[in-house]
């Protein structure tokens, strides 16, 4: 029996039982902008960047499952305008000084902002004060760039079995914490999955920043939309 299908921006996408819209799209090499979704982890639908219109209703495509013959719209101006506004809020709520960021050129937030033509942060900046944690001999945490995607929390809890990271606070006061006064006092190791999941420049290996020359970095070569998985 053939797989059921839905249409995504007019393109027919097959799906299997249990797949979400974004999983089926990725399997068909179609890009839907996203930040908190990583194909290796259970989706939790928090950033809302992947919002699509499914039969006219807005829903997070990383958590919603398609129905046969569903009409899904993603790459339309209305949604892209909202996505750009979400990105702009993420930029002004943290401190994203890309020219001095080790992740520049390989950062999903930055690449997604390029993809959605974010020419300015639009809103007023918060300029929060978020000191670094450079206590660990091999890794540093630059909280200025955290977008609260909670992938490190999931990785540390579900893969590493360590619970090194957690999100604390609510609303605008939400922030990333470690389960000790600083990273060096946790069980964190560079071999942890959590050391390698951050889509932006927070969890950084020391002494290897800026190794890839400008022009040869991941998203210098191809826009994030050309890499359907987006990572």
């Amino acid at each position: 029996m053939n797989n059921p299908t839905f249409t995504l921006d007019g393109k027919t996408i097959p799906f299997t039982e249990g797949q979400t819209i974004i999983q089926a799209a990725i399997a068909a090499s179609v890009y839907i902008p996203h930040l908190c979704f990583n194909p290796e982890f259970k989706a939790h639908g928090s950033c809302k960047l992947c919002t699509v219109k499914a039969n006219g209703r807005k829903t997070a495509s990383c958590t919603a499952q398609p129905q046969p013959d569903m009409i899904v719209e993603s790459n339309i101006q209305e949604l892209n305008d909202e996505r750009r506004a979400l990105l702009q809020m993420l930029f002004v709520e943290g401190n994203h000084f890309c020219p001095s960021c080790e992740m520049s050129g390989q950062c999903q937030l930055q690449a997604t902002a390029y993809e959605l033509n974010m020419m300015s942060p639009h809103f007023d900046h918060f300029f929060p004060d978020r000191p670094l944690d450079a206590s660990h001999p091999e890794y540093l945490l630059d909280f200025n760039r955290c977008i609260l995607c909670s992938l490190c929390v999931q990785a540390s809890r579900d893969v590493d079995g360590k619970n090194v990271f957690a999100l604390a606070g609510r609303g605008i006061n939400s922030h990333l914490i470690v389960n000790a006064s600083q990273l060096a006092e946790t069980g964190f190791s560079g071999d942890d999955k959590a050391a390698h999941v951050c889509p932006v420049g927070v969890i950084l290996k020391k002494r290897v920043g800026f190794v890839v020359p400008v022009g040869q970095r991941k998203y210098d070569l191809l826009p994030i939309s050309a890499l359907a998985k987006g990572d």
Binding site: F91, H96, F97, C98, P99, S100, S120, P121, H125, F127, P128, D129, R130
Partner: peptide
Amino acid sequence: IAIGACAINGGLPAQRNH
């Protein structure tokens, strides 16, 4: 027209803001 990081988000000089 705003040109460059500093005009657009404060850039390097804004690193003094904290």
